[in-house]
Computed example of a mutant assay.
Amino acid sequence: MTEARGPFGPRRGTHGRRAPGTPCWVSLMVHGLTATERFYGELFGWKFEPGPQQLGPYSWALLDGHRVGGIGQLAPDLHLPIAWTPHFATDDVDRTAEAVRLCGGTVGVGPVEARGTGRLVIGSDTSGAVFGVWQGVPGTGTAVTGVHGTPAWTELLTFETASVTKFYKTLFGYEEEPVVSAGLDYVTLRLDGVPVAGVHGVGHSLPRDRGSHWLTYFQVDDADAALRRVAELGGRVLEPAHDSPHGRVAKVADPEGALLALVQDPR
Protein backbone atom coordinates (compact mmCIF):
# COMPACT_ATOMS: atom_id res chain seq x y z
CA MET A 1 0.00 0.00 0.00
CA THR A 2 1.13 3.55 -0.69
CA GLU A 3 -0.45 6.96 -0.13
CA ALA A 4 -3.83 6.20 1.45
CA ARG A 5 -5.57 9.29 0.11
CA GLY A 6 -4.42 9.01 -3.49
CA PRO A 7 -6.86 7.48 -5.92
CA PHE A 8 -10.45 8.26 -5.00
CA GLY A 9 -10.08 12.02 -4.61
CA PRO A 10 -11.31 14.59 -7.12
CA ARG A 11 -8.58 13.97 -9.71
CA ARG A 12 -10.37 15.00 -12.88
CA GLY A 13 -9.75 15.27 -16.58
CA THR A 14 -11.60 17.54 -19.00
CA HIS A 15 -15.27 18.50 -18.67
CA GLY A 16 -15.36 17.62 -14.94
CA ARG A 17 -14.71 13.92 -15.50
CA ARG A 18 -12.02 11.97 -13.71
CA ALA A 19 -8.91 11.30 -15.75
CA PRO A 20 -9.09 7.89 -17.54
CA GLY A 21 -7.62 5.18 -15.35
CA THR A 22 -8.45 6.90 -12.07
CA PRO A 23 -10.32 4.71 -9.56
CA CYS A 24 -13.71 6.42 -9.32
CA TRP A 25 -16.16 3.98 -7.69
CA VAL A 26 -16.42 0.82 -5.60
CA SER A 27 -19.26 -1.68 -5.76
CA LEU A 28 -20.24 -4.85 -3.92
CA MET A 29 -22.68 -7.57 -5.01
CA VAL A 30 -24.15 -9.75 -2.24
CA HIS A 31 -26.94 -12.22 -1.55
CA GLY A 32 -28.42 -10.42 1.46
CA LEU A 33 -28.75 -6.76 0.53
CA THR A 34 -30.63 -5.62 3.64
CA ALA A 35 -28.27 -7.34 6.08
CA THR A 36 -25.21 -6.01 4.23
CA GLU A 37 -26.58 -2.47 4.30
CA ARG A 38 -27.05 -2.83 8.04
CA PHE A 39 -23.45 -4.00 8.53
CA TYR A 40 -21.87 -1.16 6.56
CA GLY A 41 -24.33 1.39 7.86
CA GLU A 42 -23.29 0.57 11.43
CA LEU A 43 -19.58 0.31 10.60
CA PHE A 44 -19.15 3.38 8.40
CA GLY A 45 -22.25 5.48 9.08
CA TRP A 46 -23.57 4.99 5.55
CA LYS A 47 -27.16 5.72 4.56
CA PHE A 48 -28.72 4.17 1.48
CA GLU A 49 -31.02 5.16 -1.37
CA PRO A 50 -32.12 3.23 -4.47
CA GLY A 51 -29.70 3.26 -7.40
CA PRO A 52 -29.85 1.85 -10.95
CA GLN A 53 -31.79 -1.41 -11.12
CA GLN A 54 -30.71 -2.72 -14.55
CA LEU A 55 -28.81 -5.64 -13.02
CA GLY A 56 -31.16 -6.15 -10.07
CA PRO A 57 -31.71 -4.37 -6.74
CA TYR A 58 -28.93 -1.83 -6.13
CA SER A 59 -28.38 0.88 -3.53
CA TRP A 60 -26.19 3.96 -3.42
CA ALA A 61 -24.18 4.22 -0.19
CA LEU A 62 -24.16 7.80 1.10
CA LEU A 63 -22.19 9.82 3.64
CA ASP A 64 -23.80 13.16 4.51
CA GLY A 65 -25.79 12.84 1.30
CA HIS A 66 -22.74 12.18 -0.90
CA ARG A 67 -22.21 8.90 -2.77
CA VAL A 68 -19.25 6.77 -1.69
CA GLY A 69 -20.08 3.40 -3.27
CA GLY A 70 -22.81 0.95 -4.17
CA ILE A 71 -24.19 -2.38 -3.00
CA GLY A 72 -26.31 -4.66 -5.17
CA GLN A 73 -28.10 -7.97 -4.75
CA LEU A 74 -27.08 -11.06 -6.71
CA ALA A 75 -29.72 -13.22 -8.32
CA PRO A 76 -30.46 -16.29 -6.14
CA ASP A 77 -29.03 -18.69 -8.74
CA LEU A 78 -25.71 -16.84 -9.06
CA HIS A 79 -22.92 -18.10 -6.83
CA LEU A 80 -20.14 -15.63 -7.55
CA PRO A 81 -17.31 -14.54 -5.25
CA ILE A 82 -18.49 -11.79 -2.92
CA ALA A 83 -15.98 -8.99 -3.35
CA TRP A 84 -15.61 -5.22 -3.48
CA THR A 85 -14.91 -4.24 -7.09
CA PRO A 86 -13.07 -1.04 -8.04
CA HIS A 87 -14.20 0.86 -11.11
CA PHE A 88 -11.79 2.87 -13.24
CA ALA A 89 -12.78 5.98 -15.18
CA THR A 90 -12.86 6.10 -18.96
CA ASP A 91 -13.96 8.63 -21.57
CA ASP A 92 -15.14 5.87 -23.94
CA VAL A 93 -16.38 2.66 -22.33
CA ASP A 94 -16.92 0.89 -25.66
CA ARG A 95 -13.35 1.52 -26.76
CA THR A 96 -12.01 0.48 -23.34
CA ALA A 97 -14.07 -2.72 -23.40
CA GLU A 98 -12.55 -3.62 -26.76
CA ALA A 99 -9.08 -2.82 -25.40
CA VAL A 100 -9.70 -5.18 -22.46
CA ARG A 101 -10.30 -8.00 -24.94
CA LEU A 102 -7.33 -7.08 -27.13
CA CYS A 103 -5.05 -7.03 -24.07
CA GLY A 104 -6.10 -10.57 -23.11
CA GLY A 105 -8.77 -9.75 -20.54
CA THR A 106 -12.44 -10.70 -20.53
CA VAL A 107 -15.60 -8.59 -20.60
CA GLY A 108 -18.30 -10.27 -18.53
CA VAL A 109 -20.98 -7.57 -18.34
CA GLY A 110 -21.74 -4.62 -20.58
CA PRO A 111 -21.38 -2.03 -21.72
CA VAL A 112 -24.71 -1.26 -20.01
CA GLU A 113 -26.51 1.97 -19.15
CA ALA A 114 -26.87 2.96 -15.49
CA ARG A 115 -30.07 5.00 -15.24
CA GLY A 116 -28.80 8.19 -16.80
CA THR A 117 -25.63 8.36 -14.72
CA GLY A 118 -23.29 6.70 -17.20
CA ARG A 119 -22.27 3.40 -18.74
CA LEU A 120 -20.23 0.58 -17.28
CA VAL A 121 -18.39 -2.63 -18.02
CA ILE A 122 -17.40 -5.41 -15.65
CA GLY A 123 -14.42 -7.44 -16.80
CA SER A 124 -11.44 -9.43 -15.61
CA ASP A 125 -7.74 -8.89 -16.24
CA THR A 126 -5.15 -11.41 -17.41
CA SER A 127 -4.74 -12.73 -13.85
CA GLY A 128 -8.50 -13.27 -13.45
CA ALA A 129 -9.13 -10.33 -11.10
CA VAL A 130 -12.51 -8.61 -11.61
CA PHE A 131 -12.71 -4.85 -12.11
CA GLY A 132 -15.11 -2.29 -13.51
CA VAL A 133 -14.83 0.47 -16.10
CA TRP A 134 -17.07 3.52 -15.71
CA GLN A 135 -17.94 6.28 -18.16
CA GLY A 136 -19.97 8.60 -15.98
CA VAL A 137 -21.65 11.92 -16.52
CA PRO A 138 -19.94 14.82 -14.70
CA GLY A 139 -20.40 14.64 -10.94
CA THR A 140 -20.89 10.88 -10.71
CA GLY A 141 -18.62 8.45 -8.92
CA THR A 142 -17.25 8.59 -5.38
CA ALA A 143 -18.08 12.12 -4.25
CA VAL A 144 -16.37 12.35 -0.85
CA THR A 145 -13.00 11.11 0.37
CA GLY A 146 -10.61 11.58 3.27
CA VAL A 147 -13.10 10.85 6.08
CA HIS A 148 -14.27 7.78 8.00
CA GLY A 149 -16.06 5.31 5.72
CA THR A 150 -14.64 6.44 2.38
CA PRO A 151 -12.47 4.48 -0.09
CA ALA A 152 -8.81 5.42 0.37
CA TRP A 153 -6.73 3.06 -1.79
CA THR A 154 -7.12 0.07 -4.08
CA GLU A 155 -4.60 -2.73 -4.50
CA LEU A 156 -4.44 -5.81 -6.71
CA LEU A 157 -3.25 -8.96 -4.95
CA THR A 158 -1.88 -11.42 -7.49
CA PHE A 159 0.78 -14.10 -7.90
CA GLU A 160 3.36 -11.83 -9.56
CA THR A 161 3.22 -8.27 -10.84
CA ALA A 162 4.95 -8.29 -14.24
CA SER A 163 2.33 -9.61 -16.66
CA VAL A 164 -0.78 -8.05 -15.10
CA THR A 165 0.97 -4.69 -14.66
CA LYS A 166 1.59 -4.68 -18.42
CA PHE A 167 -2.16 -5.26 -18.95
CA TYR A 168 -3.17 -2.20 -16.91
CA LYS A 169 -0.38 0.00 -18.32
CA THR A 170 -1.57 -0.79 -21.85
CA LEU A 171 -5.23 -0.28 -20.92
CA PHE A 172 -4.96 3.01 -19.02
CA GLY A 173 -1.52 4.42 -19.78
CA TYR A 174 -0.21 4.08 -16.24
CA GLU A 175 3.38 4.79 -15.29
CA GLU A 176 4.97 1.92 -13.39
CA GLU A 177 7.01 2.48 -10.23
CA PRO A 178 8.41 -0.68 -8.60
CA VAL A 179 8.81 -0.46 -4.84
CA VAL A 180 12.43 -1.26 -4.04
CA SER A 181 12.51 -3.50 -0.98
CA ALA A 182 14.15 -6.86 -0.41
CA GLY A 183 11.73 -9.70 -1.09
CA LEU A 184 8.81 -7.39 -1.97
CA ASP A 185 7.11 -7.63 -5.37
CA TYR A 186 5.08 -4.40 -5.46
CA VAL A 187 4.36 -1.88 -8.20
CA THR A 188 2.68 1.49 -7.78
CA LEU A 189 0.60 2.60 -10.78
CA ARG A 190 0.68 6.35 -11.42
CA LEU A 191 -1.04 8.87 -13.68
CA ASP A 192 1.00 12.00 -14.37
CA GLY A 193 3.16 11.09 -11.40
CA VAL A 194 0.24 10.70 -8.99
CA PRO A 195 -0.22 7.23 -7.39
CA VAL A 196 -3.64 5.75 -8.15
CA ALA A 197 -3.36 2.01 -7.40
CA GLY A 198 -0.99 -0.76 -6.37
CA VAL A 199 -0.17 -4.25 -7.61
CA HIS A 200 1.18 -6.65 -4.99
CA GLY A 201 2.68 -9.97 -6.03
CA VAL A 202 2.27 -12.35 -3.09
CA GLY A 203 3.35 -15.61 -4.75
CA HIS A 204 2.05 -18.77 -3.14
CA SER A 205 0.43 -16.73 -0.35
CA LEU A 206 -2.37 -15.93 -2.81
CA PRO A 207 -5.53 -17.65 -1.50
CA ARG A 208 -6.40 -20.61 -3.72
CA ASP A 209 -10.12 -20.16 -3.11
CA ARG A 210 -10.04 -16.53 -4.22
CA GLY A 211 -7.23 -16.11 -6.74
CA SER A 212 -6.12 -12.69 -7.91
CA HIS A 213 -8.39 -9.96 -6.55
CA TRP A 214 -8.62 -6.26 -5.89
CA LEU A 215 -8.62 -5.12 -2.27
CA THR A 216 -10.21 -1.80 -1.28
CA TYR A 217 -8.92 0.15 1.72
CA PHE A 218 -11.49 2.21 3.61
CA GLN A 219 -10.46 5.08 5.84
CA VAL A 220 -11.46 4.90 9.51
CA ASP A 221 -10.99 7.26 12.44
CA ASP A 222 -9.84 4.50 14.81
CA ALA A 223 -8.71 1.15 13.40
CA ASP A 224 -8.88 -0.72 16.71
CA ALA A 225 -12.38 0.54 17.46
CA ALA A 226 -13.46 -0.35 13.93
CA LEU A 227 -12.18 -3.92 14.38
CA ARG A 228 -14.22 -4.32 17.54
CA ARG A 229 -17.28 -3.06 15.67
CA VAL A 230 -16.66 -5.49 12.78
CA ALA A 231 -16.70 -8.43 15.21
CA GLU A 232 -19.84 -7.14 16.98
CA LEU A 233 -21.63 -6.87 13.64
CA GLY A 234 -20.84 -10.43 12.54
CA GLY A 235 -17.74 -9.82 10.43
CA ARG A 236 -14.29 -11.42 10.88
CA VAL A 237 -10.91 -9.94 11.67
CA LEU A 238 -8.39 -11.49 9.27
CA GLU A 239 -5.33 -9.39 10.13
CA PRO A 240 -5.21 -7.41 13.40
CA ALA A 241 -4.43 -3.72 13.26
CA HIS A 242 -0.75 -2.91 12.92
CA ASP A 243 1.23 0.26 12.37
CA SER A 244 2.73 0.97 8.96
CA PRO A 245 4.33 4.00 7.31
CA HIS A 246 0.90 4.74 5.81
CA GLY A 247 -1.16 4.47 8.99
CA ARG A 248 -2.67 1.79 11.18
CA VAL A 249 -3.93 -0.98 8.89
CA ALA A 250 -6.11 -4.08 9.35
CA LYS A 251 -7.87 -6.57 7.08
CA VAL A 252 -11.39 -7.88 7.70
CA ALA A 253 -14.24 -9.74 6.02
CA ASP A 254 -17.89 -8.73 6.17
CA PRO A 255 -20.60 -11.29 7.11
CA GLU A 256 -20.83 -12.56 3.50
CA GLY A 257 -17.05 -12.88 3.18
CA ALA A 258 -16.15 -9.77 1.18
CA LEU A 259 -12.60 -8.69 1.99
CA LEU A 260 -11.72 -5.11 2.82
CA ALA A 261 -8.90 -3.30 4.53
CA LEU A 262 -9.20 -0.54 7.11
CA VAL A 263 -6.65 2.23 7.33
CA GLN A 264 -6.34 4.89 10.00
CA ASP A 265 -4.56 8.02 8.81
CA PRO A 266 -1.18 8.36 10.55
CA ARG A 267 -1.80 12.01 11.47
Score class of each variant (00 low, 15 high):
Ala114Val: 14
Val230Pro: 01
Leu55Asp: 08
Leu55Gly: 07
His213Asn: 05
Tyr58Lys: 12
Glu37Gln: 15
Leu120Trp: 05
Glu177Val: 11
Ala114Pro: 02
Gly198Gln: 02
Asp265Lys: 06
Arg229Ser: 10
Cys24Val: 13
Asp222Lys: 03
Glu49Asn: 11
Gly45Glu: 06
Val112Met: 13
Trp134Gln: 05
Leu74Glu: 11
Thr2Ile: 08
Phe218Leu: 10
Leu62Trp: 00
Gly201Val: 07
Pro240Trp: 05
Ala4Arg: 11
Lys166Pro: 00
Thr106His: 12
Gly201Leu: 04
Ile82Ala: 01
Asp192Thr: 07
Val112Gln: 06
Thr145Ile: 02
Gly139Ala: 08
Leu28Phe: 13
Leu43Asp: 06
Arg11Glu: 09
Ala19Thr: 15
Ser212Tyr: 11
Gly110Arg: 03
Gly136His: 08
Gly16Ser: 12
Ala97Ile: 08
Ala241Phe: 12
Thr96Gly: 04
Ser124Gly: 13
Gly70Ala: 09
His246Glu: 11
Pro20Asp: 12
Gly146Glu: 01
Gly257Tyr: 14
Asp221Arg: 11
Gly70Ser: 03
Gly69His: 02
Thr34Ala: 15
Val147Lys: 08
Leu78Tyr: 15
Lys251Met: 15
Thr14Arg: 07
Leu120Ala: 12
Ala250Val: 02
Gly235Arg: 00
Ile122Glu: 00
Arg115Ile: 00
Val199Ile: 14
Gly16Lys: 07
Leu78Lys: 14
Leu102His: 13
Phe131Asn: 04
Arg190Lys: 13
Val187Gly: 01
Phe167Leu: 05
Asp254Lys: 00
Trp134Glu: 03
Thr150Arg: 07
Glu176Met: 09
Arg267Leu: 11
Tyr174His: 03
Ala162Leu: 02
Met1Glu: 04
Ala250Arg: 01
Pro138Ile: 04
Arg228Pro: 03
Asp222Ile: 02
Arg190Trp: 00
Val252Phe: 05
Pro266His: 05
Thr90Phe: 05
Leu191Trp: 04
Gly235Glu: 01
Gln73Arg: 15
Ala83Tyr: 13
Thr154Asn: 09
Tyr186Pro: 03
Tyr174Glu: 06
His242Thr: 10
Thr117Arg: 12
Ala89Ser: 15
Asp221Gly: 15
Ala231Ser: 12
Ala182Ile: 06
Gly247Ala: 09
Thr165Asp: 06
Phe172Gln: 07
Leu80Pro: 00
Asp224Ala: 10
Thr170Gln: 13
Leu62Ser: 09
Thr161Arg: 08
Gly110Phe: 05
Leu43His: 11
Gly9Pro: 03
